[in-house]
Simulated scan of single mutants.
Amino acid sequence: MTGPVEPQEHRTDRTGPQAKPRRLWITLLAVIPALFAAGTAGAFWTGYSLHDRPFAWYNSNRIAATAERAARDLSPTIVVALGDAALRHATLDEPGMAALAARHGVESLHFLRIVHDHARIEDFEPLFGDVLKLKPALVLLDADLLFAERGDVAGLRRYGAHLTEVAMLGRSYLPDQSALQYAKPCHAVGPQGWTATAADRWVEARETAVRMNDDSPAFERVRRFADQARAAGVGIALLLPPRPAAVEEKLYGAGNGYRPAALDRLRGQADLPLWRLPDSARKTMTFCRSGMLAPEGRDAYSAWLAGGIAERLSHPRVEEAALQ
């Protein structure tokens, strides 16, 4: 026996036109999150890749301002220093370096220091053309720039942390470029000083941000810049801003003034002399909790550096040994 039969005109075709909107919604629900994720990732990567542009713009303007000031002097002497945050803490600002140089007979020194946190040579390459147009007498490079590598993964992590601070703490999205060049905060080290444990933590944090590779292709990039500088009549020298003895022992090995493999690679590079503060002076240096030179150490290092600049300018082929 069969049940009632639904009239033909009232049957619903469940695979007909009414099913299409349902499939469309299912498709949209699957696609929209994927599109949103892709768009977010694209925006994140674009922001990361452009985040450092203000550094180049800001320092291009500083280079132009230095050129304008130098043009007002009859016999200006321009020295440009490029490096990591350690260089910022190790040297006085422009007026202070000019005053020290004047004591050594270098009048009208225009000292332009450009630094980048966790620096690598790629950070400064957009500025190389402008630097050489300044026609400086000397360009000083942080020696670590020849070997420093900073991977995108570490950079993305820092950028993500920065965005979190922007959202949660109301920090400015764009870094404070003036603070990057001039701020020198210094918190005192605890009564135990720089212990091996503190040095281990410092080295671990640094290697998370930037890694030293003795075979880095950065060496050849610096080498090419040095060749261009020499062709333009510009001298080059390498600097090694001091760090706490416990940190240097972790970085370079006991009894070494720098990484031995890096020194081996520098041998034979006569136009890349390495200027190192004498060990006798390093023993009296004081440091901040950040591992950077404290104000007293900065004064001492700057005085030594001003003397080295004067010596190099008076004898253009000064060798490394003359500055130790």
Results as ranks from 00 to 15, higher is better:
residue 232 A to M: 05
residue 128 F to M: 10
residue 132 L to I: 11
residue 164 T to I: 10
residue 174 L to G: 02
residue 144 D to Y: 05
residue 239 L to G: 12
residue 230 R to A: 15
residue 157 R to G: 08
residue 216 S to T: 03
residue 209 A to S: 11
residue 201 R to D: 08
residue 180 L to H: 02
residue 233 G to M: 15
residue 115 V to S: 00
residue 130 D to Q: 15
residue 174 L to F: 11
residue 149 E to A: 11
residue 197 T to W: 13
residue 122 E to P: 00
residue 232 A to D: 10
residue 205 A to I: 07
residue 128 F to Q: 08
residue 172 S to V: 04
residue 192 Q to E: 07
residue 184 K to H: 02
residue 229 A to P: 00
residue 166 V to E: 03
residue 213 N to L: 09
residue 115 V to K: 02
residue 233 G to S: 12
residue 160 G to K: 09
residue 163 L to H: 02
residue 238 L to P: 08
residue 126 P to Q: 13
residue 134 L to S: 06
residue 188 A to C: 04
residue 161 A to V: 15
residue 128 F to Y: 14
residue 121 I to F: 12
residue 164 T to S: 07
residue 159 Y to D: 12
residue 185 P to M: 15
residue 136 P to A: 11
residue 228 Q to K: 04
residue 207 E to F: 13
residue 127 L to Y: 01
residue 141 L to W: 04
residue 218 A to Q: 05
residue 170 G to S: 09
residue 131 V to P: 00
residue 126 P to H: 15
residue 153 V to Y: 10
residue 138 L to R: 01
residue 194 W to C: 08
residue 140 L to V: 09
residue 114 I to K: 09
residue 173 Y to Q: 08
residue 136 P to D: 10
residue 163 L to Y: 03
residue 231 A to Y: 06
residue 223 R to N: 14
residue 134 L to N: 04
residue 171 R to G: 08
residue 119 A to K: 14
residue 229 A to L: 09
residue 149 E to I: 02
residue 193 G to N: 02
residue 120 R to G: 05
residue 232 A to S: 06
residue 184 K to Y: 01
residue 114 I to F: 00
residue 178 S to P: 00
residue 135 K to P: 00
residue 128 F to C: 04
residue 214 D to W: 10
residue 207 E to Y: 05
residue 180 L to K: 05
residue 207 E to I: 05
residue 123 D to T: 08
residue 202 W to R: 08
residue 210 V to G: 01
residue 160 G to C: 06
residue 150 R to M: 02
residue 180 L to N: 04
residue 152 D to Q: 07
residue 204 E to H: 12
residue 190 G to V: 09
residue 172 S to D: 10
residue 207 E to T: 13
residue 176 D to Q: 06
residue 178 S to Y: 08
residue 205 A to F: 08
residue 121 I to D: 03
residue 173 Y to H: 12
residue 177 Q to E: 13
residue 172 S to M: 06
residue 211 R to N: 03
residue 138 L to W: 01
residue 218 A to I: 00
residue 159 Y to W: 11
residue 126 P to E: 10
residue 131 V to Q: 03
residue 192 Q to P: 03
residue 153 V to F: 13
